[in-house]
Simulated scan of single mutants.
Amino acid sequence: MTTPTTSLFLLDHLADDAMTSELARGDLDALRAVADWIETFVVRPHKDLGRPGPVCPFVPGALERNTLWLAPEQLAGQGVPQVVELLNRYQTLFLDTPPTDGDDVDGKVIVVVFTDLPADRAQGLFADALQRLAIPSYGDHGIVFGAFYEGNEGTAIYNGSFHPFTSPVPFVFVRRGVISDWKFFLDNEELLRLWGRRFGESAVSTLAGELRRLPWRAWHD
């Protein structure tokens, strides 16, 4: 498992038998389950989200521009070093896959679907792998990874009782970091520092805009 499949599927491809003829049945079923979850949950509003708009504001634009791909991978019982190696290679694939410049770069994402990974093993495996990847990948390339699996206890930013990261099949997304990611970095000083370095004056303006909407002056008084 040292090389990605490099089989990248748009969601529309999954309904085309000619496009998926070489996929194993289990891989195809897993991709279709993730695609259905994206279309019925991720791109729609939810009453428990705590803010207006879709569950993930990033995904609708990626689907519209055809820059969200699913990629099937089988772990076959392998461990953290192999996951780290595989995701590093998907990072390279992501960086090399058009668009590679312009505004659309920030709107593309590769979803690496681990089609044979039990959900109860995903938590520890993904946590250990992403701990090794998060800082160097973001610092060197501005790349962000995100882990999804059934039972993921991660919560929405605006509602601590809502768990939006519980996908039907374990996967890790690969995307370019965007300025709004600071909300996910608040409890990680190193990532927040790298975010500030990456976005410079725009980072200051973004945080100032958030503070202006909060009644912190009244709290101080």
Rank of each mutant, 00 (worst) to 15 (best):
T5V: 10
S7D: 13
F9D: 08
R25V: 13
L31D: 04
V42Q: 01
L49K: 02
G53V: 00
P54K: 00
C56A: 12
C56L: 02
C56H: 00
P57S: 07
P60M: 10
R65P: 03
R65W: 03
W69M: 03
W69D: 03
P72M: 06
L75R: 09
A76E: 08
V83T: 09
N88E: 14
T92Q: 15
T92W: 02
F94C: 07
L95S: 13
D101E: 15
V105T: 14
V109H: 01
V109I: 08
V109E: 13
I110Y: 09
F114V: 02
T115S: 15
G124Y: 09
Q131H: 15
A134G: 07
I135R: 11
H141F: 15
I143N: 10
I143C: 07
V144E: 12
F145A: 06
A147W: 04
E150Q: 13
T155G: 00
G160D: 13
P164V: 07
S167P: 01
P168H: 05
V174S: 11
R175L: 13
F185A: 08
R193W: 05
G196W: 03
R198K: 15
E201L: 12
S202D: 15
A203R: 09
A208P: 00
G209S: 09
L214W: 13
R217F: 10
D221E: 14
